[in-house]
């Protein structure tokens, strides 16, 4: 079963009007692997994430996940197929409690029908208890149990990022996409995050693909890197190979004068 949950992207193109944000990008990610999408600002990394999660239109190319074509499927459908994500600019439900943020993400697994909720049946009460327990469990994974009743918007930045990860985990995903998880974190927090991501992969047996500018984190953590520049994949492979790739160095240090 696990083997079917690999991600395969073929010739992915995303156009915005006349602009080619992503141009013929192909890569694949094996189950339980840790990958990173890196590249300079504006290279199209987040656009790839948006395409993978159904938040922007794929102009051409295929995205295959778990032996199913998911390009241009609605976002909620893709979420149900097991791809969860976080956002670069944190999209928590700010006016809801942390616990409610997580409970919402259990949505696709909820069993009870609407009438059961309206008449407050035993089935409803029991399942709500389970959902809450599940949310508390996910919250403890990111060490934020004591924050469950706080409003999400009132948390400090680093904690919000962790809540967003916990919320994504409530989907029981096979693939977790993290968009700049370490942004705005101090070195200590980044270290905890690194350990958390490793634990998630090992304990929950999921694949993680992240976008990150903190190269130390990426090089320490990831097994496979995909480098984007101007919407194109310019290098892929293990950290060592990518680090020494002349095209990557050029993309990061400039020098396109030639």
């Amino acid at each position: 079963m696990l083997a079917t949950n690999n991600l395969q992207v073929n010739d992915l193109c995303v156009n915005f009007g006349g602009l080619q944000a992503v141009n013929k990008v192909s890569f694949s990610l094996k189950p339980q692997s840790l990958g990173a999408l890196i590249g300079p600002n504006g290279a199209g990394k987040t656009t790839v994430f948006n395409a993978l999660t159904g938040l922007c239109r794929v102009s051409s190319g295929q995205i295959e996940f778990g032996n199913e074509h998911i390009a241009n499927q609605p976002a909620h459908y893709i979420a149900r197929r097991g791809i969860a994500r976080t956002f670069q600019n944190i999209r928590l439900f700010k006016n809801l409690t942390v616990l409610d943020n997580l409970r919402i993400a259990y949505h696709q697994n909820r069993q009870y029908p609407l009438l059961s909720a309206i008449f407050l049946t035993t089935k409803f009460r029991q399942e709500e208890k389970q959902i809450t327990a599940k949310a508390e469990e996910a919250l403890s994974l990111v060490n934020l149990s004591e924050r469950s009743q706080s409003l999400a918007g009132s948390l400090p930045y680093g904690e919000q990022r962790r809540v967003e990860i916990a919320r994504a985990l409530m989907l029981n995903p096979h693939l977790l996409l993290l968009d700049e998880p370490a942004a705005g974190m101090n070195p200590q927090e980044t270290q905890t995050l690194l350990q958390l991501i490793r634990d998630l992969r090992d304990n929950l047996k999921l694949s993680i693909l992240l976008i990150e500018h903190d190269m130390k984190l990426v090089m320490n953590l990831c097994e496979e890197l995909f480098v984007l520049d101007y919407g194109q994949l310019i290098a892929a492979g293990c950290p060592k190979t990518v680090q020494n790739d002349p095209r990557v160095i050029q993309a990061y240090l400039g020098g396109k004068t030639a």
């Binding site: 909620h76 993400a105 949505h107 989907l171």
Partner: peptide
């Protein structure tokens, strides 16, 4: 609160 985030959580 956020329709896009909701969609990406399967709503």
């Amino acid at each position: 609160e956020d329709e896009i985030a909701a969609e990406s959580l399967g709503v």
